[in-house]
Each structure stands twice: as C-alpha cells, then as structure tokens.
Design a protein around this nucleic acid. Sequence first.
DNA 1: ACGATCGTATCGTGCGCCAATACCTGCTCG
DNA 2: CGAGCAGGTATTGGCGCACGATACGATCGT
Lengths: 258, 258
Amino acid sequence: MTKTAGANAVDERLFLQSVARALDVLEAFAQSPRPKSLGEIAAATGINKSAAQRIGQTLLARGYLERADSGGLTLGRKLLDRSFDYLRSNPLIERATPVLMELRKLAGERIDLSLFDDTSTIYAIRLQSKRETFYATLPGRRIPSFLSSGGRSCMAHMADEAVDDLLMRSNRRALTPKSRTELPQIWEKVREARAEGYSWAAEEALIGEVVLAAAVLDSDRQPIGAVHIAGSLSEWSIPDFRRRFSPLAIEAARALSV
Amino acid sequence: MTKTAGANAVDERLFLQSVARALDVLEAFAQSPRPKSLGEIAAATGINKSAAQRIGQTLLARGYLERADSGGLTLGRKLLDRSFDYLRSNPLIERATPVLMELRKLAGERIDLSLFDDTSTIYAIRLQSKRETFYATLPGRRIPSFLSSGGRSCMAHMADEAVDDLLMRSNRRALTPKSRTELPQIWEKVREARAEGYSWAAEEALIGEVVLAAAVLDSDRQPIGAVHIAGSLSEWSIPDFRRRFSPLAIEAARALSV
DNA sequence: ACGATCGTATCGTGCGCCAATACCTGCTCG
DNA sequence: CGAGCAGGTATTGGCGCACGATACGATCGT
C-alpha cells in the first residue's frame, strides 16, 4: 500500500479520517476483488466492525458498494461512472481517442494509451486488434513503469537523477522470465529509447507479446503518457515489428504532445 | 441526480455525512468534467468552503483528485484503479471477455457489453470494430435504458408492471430525432424483443448507427446485462444487419447467462 | 444443540469535524 | 496605483457527529 507520500502531502489537521477510511474500504478490494463480509473488511482495513458497518452502509446507499449474492459486499457500478468522468476530464484522452482509432486502423494491431504515474503506468484506453486472443486487457490496469515499454519511453525524457530515483523506489519484481529487473539492464533500455525516440519490450510483461511505445509530452516537455502498439510474436519477428510500427507510434505520440 | 432511492435505503443513523460529502465532491465532476476551484466545488455540492477544503485535501492526498494546471482540482487517476477493481470483481465481465473477443472476431463489428442498472444502462466493455470512426465510445458511459437496445432486451425479461414502473421513473428525453420516447412506442419494441429474443434500435442513440442486443440473465432469470453488436447504416441495411448478427448476439448472450 | 459468524441495531462518550474567520497571493479593474 | 475580488491556505473554539463496545436474532456447518 504505497501512501503516495511526498508528492501531495497534506496538513494532518485537514485530513478527514472517515473519508480516508471509506477509501480504505474501497481499496481493500484491490487485493482480492471477491465479495467481503463486514468482518473481512474490518480486518483488511484495520478498522473495527462498527466503523466498517457505517462505511459499508454509506457506500452501499450511494452505489459504490453492492450486496453480493452471498450477502457480503462487493464493489458497485457507480465506480464506473467516476472513471468515465475521469476519462472525460482528461484532455489528453479526449484528443487522443480519434488519433488512436486512426492509428489502429493503420496498424491493425492492439493500441494502448498509457498514463505515466511515477513507478507505475496505467492503461487508460485499449483498442483491441482483430485477432486479439489474450486474456482480459482491461482499462485501468497498472503495470510497473520499469518493465513497460511505455514507462521506459517516459523515463527517457526525464533527468538521470529522476530516473534513478524512480527505479530505486520501484518494486522491481519480474512478471515473466524475460522481465529486466536489474538497474543496468533497464538503464540500457532507457538510453536506447533516448536514441531511437521510442522503446520496445518483448515478453517482459506477457509471454508471446511484443510492444513498442513512444512518449507523449506536455507543454513543459514532461512525459505524461505513451502510445503503445502491441503485437504477437507468433506473427512478427522483433525487427520487422519495430521497423514497421515504430514510426507510427512516434508520429502518433508527437501529434498528441503539447 | 437520481438518489438511488428505495432500492438500498439505509438507516440514517449509520450514514456518514463526511463520506457522503466526499462522494458529492467527486460526483460534482459528472456534470462538467472541467477543473474546479474550491469555491466552485462548494457551490456545486452545497457545502461550504471549509468543508470543500478538507475534503479536497483528503481526496488529493489519496490521488482521487489532482491539481490542475490552472491551480484548481480535477479528478485523479486513482479512480481508474477502482473501476479496474470493479471490472475484475464482476464475474459476468470476467467470463464475458473471451466470449466477446471471439464474437468480435466473428462479426467484425463493434461489440459492447452493457450492465443493466434500472433506468440506465452502463457500457462496461467496448470492443471497437476495425472501421470505427465514431467519436469516443468510452467505457463507463451510461445510456437511458428505455432507448437502448440493450435496455429494451432486458426489459423484455421483466414483468409488465416492472417495465411500466421503470419507464415511469425514466426521464424520457430524446437523444436523436429518431429516439422513441412515448410509452406505446417503447412497449412495442419490448414486445418485439420478447418475440424475437433480441432488440434492435436504429439511430436512437447516435445518428448513423444501428445496434442490436440480447439480454444476459442470471440464475434467477433476471436480466443483468446485454451483448450489443453495433454497425454503421452506411454499410448495412437494417434487415441485412438484423439477419446477419442477431443469431450471434443471442448465442453469445445465452452462453453468458447463468 | 452448539458455537461461530453473519448482518443489524443501540447508546453514551469523546474527539473529530464543523464553519467562521483571518491571512496571503495574484488578478483585474477603475 | 490601490481597491476589490477570488484564489488557496491556515487557525480556532465549540458542537455534534462519528466512535467503538456491546447486544441481538438469523443462519450456517458440525
């Protein structure tokens, strides 16, 4: 449970305990999304049963929790509304959508837009390819920045110290046997991304998958996200894939920058 | 702002005011997703500036709000995590994903999975078609049940009185000139859906679009969602579209039921 | 029949939140 | 140039909301 410390710290006296607890309850489902009883919620969040009851009832009344068939509580549909509002509110996503649709038509492969969020990277928009058979590539998924091509392409636009700092704070756990977890290996990819203008990764997050990504920059030239193109190694060699799609990703990312 | 009244009412004494207010703040962005100042938030939610400040700081610290460039507050990326958790937690979505992917490969048109939520219908999964050019079809979008093919296909599985009740509670505002807003017109479509096993709608939500949908039922034979297939009227005549895709939608919905 | 665990309900107390207020800063006016 | 406004930030005393212990009936599995 990273506390999002430092970046946006807040005066303790302005911090609402009950609101934070309510968020704790919702976040408790991140670890295991199964329905939970009041007792489980209390245990998972470290609050007592009474508080869990009150928070549960409140979130239930508002639709952020729902009764499960089992009698327990599950996450509620209202959460989708809030994430919809977020997607609408983000100007990058608004202007990215048509560009990404066009890109997918052109490339014919899966296109993702990821948002750079420090040590992790969030897939915000996912446009499946025609022959996609991989399991649930849901929007909202987070991937560690250090092993995603999108994260590395963003790091390529950061100062060396900032990259080092990010990598030090990352929990560098491998997702596949091919995941690069050692600092020199990752730095090598970051430098490559700086030279080439994009980054690529083969089977570092998912076996059989090759991805390349180019960073999207804001008006201060800071990376805010990346455009990904993902394909299957059963259909492409890595050199062919890079040669064919890297110009497309770079061009799309450039169009979305600033 | 429907209050989700009745369905899950709650003892007032267990209702946490500050949690509800925090949710009010997040929901305030639904009306207009632009960044808001503390004053705007206070005005939009009916709380005073002090409370808005405290709630804002708390949600900011947790990542559910972020500072906008302008200095105001916007929705935060953390909202995407919660909606991701919801999607993972919903068993229908889990088992639907591979089926829908297969369906899209087969149909070649846009596929949606919607969740039936009383007077409105939420698009939970959206698989774009190759030639999709329509503007941003984001997941989490809500459409009134009465004019969506998915909503009507769900109504077809409800008792007459329940349908009447739902329609009476709906705000039957047209989205396009072709939207059916009068009760007899809607009932006609519901009866048609009962007879055919699916429902269709042409240009009732979006000009140039034809959609058909079949309901997904739970173990109690209650409708919980629908499988949609959407195409463009520039490519299909309505009879051709119905003839070709209705069996696919019905079959997929049946596979997902129970 | 039983203990365990579920959700629900009650209640007195304490402290966490309330709202008013003041402060500082950067605007945009006249 | 200074008044005026709206922005975010910080402080405070007092009230009332939320706290947590506790108890209740229902439903399980044994």
